[in-house]
Design a protein around this nucleic acid. Structure first.
Lengths: 191, 191
DNA sequence: GTCTATAATCGGATAGAC
DNA sequence: GTCTATCCGATTATAGAC
């Protein structure tokens, strides 16, 4: 019976990955369960064998999106500067795949209840921790270093989120470019 | 009959101000027409004498929110530094009143259609123009100056949006504080 | 576990009285 | 113009067959 259990877990994972891509790209309310399940290669009826409600899926999909996005940036980036460039790349502008939930759901989450905000907060702390680990700055002032990381996160998340909301694509690209430069300077500069 | 027309305009304005506050605070889908009209002191039936659809109200409410927020920051700020401080103040964190749509709807808008994104883009350009006017930098390099303004906007909008999405209020306040400092440094520094 | 069919709900939009 | 009452579409959630 073991293969049956693993088959269920595979289905569940397909649903989560589909949901992570759709929710980060279109938001919670603009995506129906139909759409998620179709994208996962199933029909609506099967949904409730895996999740109790749409909101439960949403919460877990945000986690999945965050972890998946982090893994991808990890794998593609050679160093901290590369990570920043990848994060603020033009590819992220209109990507139809999973987008970093920190940026793509930043104000969506602000309108949700505390359960969702808690998940977002946890992911954000992971995001900054990850930035800090990548940061090979030799600065001794730990507090000041943490401040730098926080400002890097503001510029990266804010820059990507802003760029994705503009119809003026030239302006959006300029914002990406400048944000990338600014985040990299925050990384390079000594204090 | 003139008073009748002005009465209608007053009702319309009450609806717009109520909608601007509710939509920026709770998002488009978490606010019903019932709630908007009640907040404006009317009932749902009266709504369609003023707007053709909820989405039309949303579009105009975003404009109203942007203009109203700008006016308030204008009136309360003595200079550019004060403007930044007000924008990234703790009062903006949990404000139940109209919030700057640049920050409070940043990812919401990314999930909407181009009509909404166009309005957001126009407001954003007004936002940066306003920052530039306030900026009394004596730098001669116009391009570089524009770049500085864009990065200020990323830090201000991103910092406020991020802070509003976190349940860890201490961390949120720290992000506001650091963002304010960073935006002010961008304003002060010579190139 | 997954499917099809259906129930239940919610919210946007309309009709008609005042 | 504003009100109450109603319609109707969309979508979440459930029931029951396989």
């Amino acid at each position: 019976m073991a293969w049956k259990e693993s088959h269920k877990q595979e289905s569940r994972q397909r649903i989560l990955l589909a949901a992570a891509a759709l929710f980060t790209r279109k938001g919670f309310n603009n995506v129906g369960i139909d759409e998620v399940m179709e994208s996962a290669g199933m029909t609506r009826g099967a949904f409730y064998a895996h999740f109790n409600s749409k909101i439960e899926l949403y919460e877990q999909a945000i986690m999945t999106a965050g972890i998946t996005a982090a893994q991808r940036f990890n794998n593609n980036a050679v160093d901290h500067m590369g990570l920043i460039e990848n994060y603020l790349s033009e590819e992220q502008l209109n990507s139809t795949d999973i987008c970093c939930p920190m940026a793509c759901l930043i104000s969506d989450v602000a309108h949700d209840d505390d359960r969702v905000k808690d998940i977002y907060t946890r992911l954000y702390k992971g995001f900054t921790k990850h930035l800090a680990k990548f940061d090979n700055s030799d600065c001794d002032d730990a507090d000041n270093n943490e401040d730098k990381i926080l400002m890097q996160s503001v510029v990266m998340i804010g820059g990507l989120a802003l760029a994705r909301s503009l119809t003026d694509k030239a302006l959006a690209k300029k914002i990406l470019r400048l944000s990338s430069k600014a985040a990299q300077q925050l990384h390079t500069e000594k204090v």
